[in-house]
Write a protein that binds this DNA or RNA. Structure first.
Length: 594
RNA sequence: GCCCCUGUAGCACAGUGGUAGUGCGUUCCACUCGUAAUGGAAAGGUCGUCAGUUCGACUCUGAUCAGGGGCUCCA
């Protein structure tokens, strides 16, 4: 039912409402602050924003005044009029208005394209392709809200002026707005930062530093279970585990090309006080694992018979991410990549690529992650930041395109999203606040084999260059767990739950029996604990519910006498409940707990 | 890195220019209880940090650190 409320309005109608509301916002701002230059105000998911150039930032009080003015404009029921304008004439008009951003936008519209403006009433207008509603009176003054102020760079360029952006949300009815805001509040309860704290999975410490999560016993259990799961999958698919150090010589990253591009983002290990010395003989924390795996590959002369060689490692890497970009587990400075590098012959590339995608999809399937988008991250042809020949890039991009088509997987192309050494296939997930994050990734790379002069001996005895595939189904354990916490709302499936069962003695007289049950279950590798707190049973159940423990095993007089447990399950669709012999409980959960 | 907001006990939050409170949690005592909160008591904070204004600051100002929302970035 509630799903229908926000969808009861057709998308194009919401689009109109949001366009017009953003114009009402801009008009209100210019009424209140006439010196403010306006730029652009598109509709976005759930709402709109508008960018303003103004000497001083907006403060919360400004927002209140702006909102009032917007309501006034709505109540004035100003007609919204679309007008096609002549380019030269409009250019003159904008120059007179002294709106430099508008001028730039107008000049950015290609010749020959229709130029439209929308009027609110007789005076105020803005460049816009539309569509809009036909009158500000069509807007419900109770159905929009200004949600936040933020800074944004003009045209998304950090070198250009910083503008003040006001975000808002707009709907057709007040009920929809209320429902939307309620859902946002609901979503925040699933935020992995909140749940991670409540469930005691990870912490941050000022003494350690920003972006460096500390994993508690429970959080570490989840990490281990995820790693075990993937490790097994990989061993079955011919991957070879390797282990490499956390630091390495700067030279390694000069060869790979990362130093030149990312040196500001690396943690220096030695000689950090002297950049010249660091350049020459320094060590850095590894920002990625590839050069290390490459060195293992290079440690011997390789035959085509050894390929594909798939070197895998849960490698923890360190990147000095910009301070403003850190957040929760989704962007951190130290994280563990479920990395593997596949060294393949050119002939093997397509098949290996498909196998990797197959692995990734089966991993997502096991984790019940369904809601993802596949992005073909290709180079931006206009940029010169990429290494290697255009031909190599074409080959790599085509390999990815072919694989995706073969799998008939829904996908989209992200131009300019490639790594500097090669194109990627990325798997994108959303967090509870609708922000998108990349988890899994597969990358085809012709550059690093070249730069590190990798070879193998082909059938005909000649030396050939292998192709590399970089891949990480999880992306990073940190980010994956962040997304999983939100996906599951803290209710991890039994196989991932850090504590699978909590034994709850009815009174402390049965603590002994509870302990003996725990020992038996632990012998079967079940993760159990006993609640020996001096509380009433009801309280313990409540606590276990809040801790999101899948099974509560209540034990008292009856159970102690019959070697049984009273099962209370939080698992959806689980039929087991009430008093059952301990052995029955064990049989019940064994198959799914491996 | 840039803009804005926030920073009070383990957690969630009140609060005032005259050196601090509530709930949960923790510990202790009593209760010995059958599927989402038993009652009582106690411990716990130099109010993020460092300066400044002031007779006096947790409360005002500045800087700094951390967190949050965006922007830029994301090998």
């Amino acid at each position: 039912m509630t799903t229908d409320l926000l969808r009861s309005t057709p998308p194009d109608q919401l689009e109109r409402i949001r366009h017009t509301t953003s114009h009402v916002l801009a008009m209100a701002v210019q009424r209140l602050f006439p010196e403010t230059k306006v730029t652009i105000g598109p509709s976005i998911k759930d709402g709109f924003y508008y960018d303003f150039d103004r000497a001083t930032p907006f403060i919360p009080d400004d927002l209140k005044r702006i909102k009032k003015e917007m309501i006034r404009i709505v109540n004035q029921k100003l007609p919204v009029r679309r007008e096609v304008r002549d380019r030269a004439e409009l250019t003159q008009e904008i120059i007179q208005l002294n709106e430099p951003y508008k001028l730039e936008l107008l000049q950015g519209i290609p010749e020959g394209e229709e130029i439209t403006v929308y009027y609110l009433g007789d005076q105020w207008w803005d460049l816009c392709a539309g569509p809009h509603v036909s009158s500000t009176g069509d807007l419900d003054p109770k159905a929009f809200e200004l949600t936040s102020v933020a800074a944004a760079y003009w045209r998304g360029d950090a070198q250009k002026a910083q503008l003040q952006r006001i975000y808002g949300t707009a709907w057709q009815t007040a009920e929809q707005l209320t429902e939307y805001l309620r859902r946002q509040e609901e979503a925040k309860k699933r935020d992995h930062r909140k749940l991670g704290k409540e469930l005691g999975l990870f912490v941050f410490s000022d003494a350690v530093g920003p972006g460096l999560p500390l994993w508690t016993p429970k959080g570490t259990m989840i990490r281990m279970l995820l790693q075990d799961f993937l490790q097994k999958e990989q061993l079955q698919r011919g991957y070879l585990p390797v282990t490499t150090p956390h630091i390495g010589r700067v030279d390694l990253f000069k060869t790979s090309g990362h130093w030149q591009k990312y040196k500001e983002d690396m943690f220096p290990m030695m000689a950090e006080d002297d950049e010249a010395r660091l350049e020459e003989q320094g060590f850095v924390m590894k920002p990625m694992n590839c050069p290390f795996h490459i060195q293992i590959y290079k440690s011997d002369l390789r035959s085509y018979r050894e390929l594909p060689m798939r070197l895998a490692e849960f490698g923890t890497v360190y990147r000095y991410e910009q301070s403003g970009e850190l957040g929760g587990l989704t962007r951190v400075r130290g994280f563990t990549v479920d990395d593997a590098h596949l060294f393949v012959t050119p002939d093997q590339l397509d098949a290996e690529f498909l196998k990797v995608v197959d692995l990734i999809l089966s991993v997502f399937d096991k984790l019940a992650l369904k809601d993802f988008k596949a992005r073909l991250s290709f180079r931006d042809p206009l940029s010169d930041k990429y290494l290697g020949s255009s031909e190599a890039w074409d080959r790599a991009e085509n390999a990815i395109r072919k694989a995706v088509e073969q799998l008939s997987m829904p996908h989209f192309e992200g131009i300019g999203e490639a790594a500097f050494y090669g194109p990627k296939l990325d798997f994108i997930f959303s967090d509870v606040l609708g922000r998108e994050w990349q988890l899994g990734t597969v990358q085809v790379d012709y550059q690093l084999p070249e730069r590190f002069e990798l070879e193998y001996v082909a059938e005909d005895g000649t030396r050939q260059r292998p192709v590399m595939i970089h891949r990480a189904p999880f992306g990073s354990l940190e980010r994956l767990i962040g997304i999983l916490i939100e996906q599951y709302a803290g209710d991890f499936p039994l196989w991932l739950a850090p504590v699978q069962a909590r034994i709850i003695p009815v009174t402390d007289q049965f603590n002994g029996y509870a302990q003996s049950i725990a020992v038996q279950l632990q012998k079967c590798n079940l993760r159990v604990e006993v609640d020996v707190s001096p509380e009433r049973m009801n309280k313990k159940i409540r606590t276990a519910e809040k801790d999101k423990i899948p099974y509560m095993l209540v034990v008292g007089e009856q159970e102690a006498q019959s070697q049984s447990v009273s099962v209370r399950s939080r698992i959806e669709g689980d039929l087991l409940s009430g008093s059952v012999p301990l052995t029955e409980f064990m049989q019940h959960i064994m198959p799914s707990s491996s």
